[in-house]
């Protein structure tokens, strides 16, 4: 780890000003905000992140969960994962978010990790994490070692010739199904980005993972008011029974009316280069009764574009089962 200058931001403006001095907010940033530290320290120890300046934002007043005027929820960027998971409003109206958070990492890490930090959690691809290996995400143009390498855990959706790294977050999957909005304070002012647009697929620039610019600070996340009568579920499949990243996971928010799925939102984790919204599967299900036939159709639609690698072809079938079972759970079919 390189020596860095450490400072504490006393205000959002101060943090933004410090961040704006970095040429990039993406891989290779020279200024990094630290909140929980669970991703940043991990990567700094590996020399994957080498900031010259680390700005502690923990004292900023961004640690509240509040109702919004329209009945939604406003979650401060510094709200810890454990606090968010146990928040009564979240448990009541956004069960999928609570479940996703509690399925992630460990109790200790959830006490540290923040909402904003988890949005920026980096991939677990072993080649990204090892500076002795080629990785386009870490070092543009160096190549992708994961293609043809150890890729059992990696993505089958949204990949490119340049990168097949998975977004590892559970929270992000739930936020995607909940159609969250990310609120950002930047050097040029405030803006809001729907979560779907916040993350970008690797394409030819895998070092770019989201739309953040230098100086941008995620301040809070908002959720729309819960759909009346909706039920939500997070299902995570993995080798170990706990404390492990997903092989496949699914977040489902569903409203059943008159025996048919009136509205459904599905996002999946463990399979995409970003939290993956399953729009085709939603279309295949909405307006229909939930049965084996419609579920299979939805699962097929969801994974139609899947591109398996040398070791992760199983994820196509696993993701289908994950999606089908989660929809069944959310629609109380099981």
């Amino acid at each position: 780890m390189d020596l860095f200058q450490f400072s504490r931001a006393e205000s959002v403006a101060q943090a933004v000003a410090a961040g704006a001095e970095s040429p990039t907010a993406q891989q290779g940033a020279q200024v990094r905000f630290v909140a929980g530290g669970t991703t940043l320290l991990d990567l700094m120890k590996l020399n994957v992140e080498r900031p010259q300046r680390v700005v502690d934002i923990n004292k900023l007043p961004l640690d509240k969960v509040e109702r919004t005027a329209d009945g939604g929820l406003k979650i401060g960027a510094l709200v810890r994962n454990s606090d968010l998971a146990h928040n009564e409003m979240v448990q009541k109206d956004y069960a999928v978010l609570s479940q996703a958070l509690l399925s992630g990492a460990s109790a200790q890490l959830r006490n540290m990790a923040t909402t904003g930090g988890n949005l920026l959690q980096r991939t677990r691809c072993v080649y990204f994490r090892d500076t002795a290996m080629a990785c386009n995400k870490r070092e543009a143009g160096s190549g992708c070692s994961a293609i043809g390498g150890f890729n059992r855990m990696l993505a089958i959706l949204g990949t490119s010739e340049q990168c097949i790294a998975t977004n590892p977050s559970d929270m992000n999957v739930a936020l995607t199904a909940l159609e969250a909005t990310i609120h950002i304070q930047g050097a040029k002012g405030e803006r809001s980005v729907p979560i779907h647009d916040f993350f970008v697929v690797p394409g030819s620039t895998p070092q770019q993972e989201n739309v953040l610019e230098p100086g941008d600070l995620i301040t809070y996340v908002t959720l729309p008011a819960p759909a009346a009568g909706s039920k939500s579920v997070y299902l995570k499949l993995r080798d170990r029974a706990s404390y492990e990243f997903a092989l496949a996971s699914a977040a489902v928010v569903a409203t059943v009316e008159g025996g048919r799925l009136k509205r459904v939102r599905i996002a999946m984790g463990g399979v995409g280069t970003k939290p993956w919204r399953m729009v085709e599967a939603e279309k295949a299900l909405e307006g229909h009764a939930v049965n084996e036939g419609t579920l299979h159709k939805a699962a097929e639609a969801a994974l139609r574009g899947a591109k398996p690698q040398s070791e992760n072809g199983y994820k196509v079938e696993l993701a289908k089962r994950c999606l089908m079972y989660a929809v069944k759970q959310a629609t109380q079919a099981v």
Partner: peptide, 8 residues
Amino acid sequence: DYVVATHA
């Protein structure tokens, strides 16, 4: 990435 059994 080399997981060993845990409590669960």
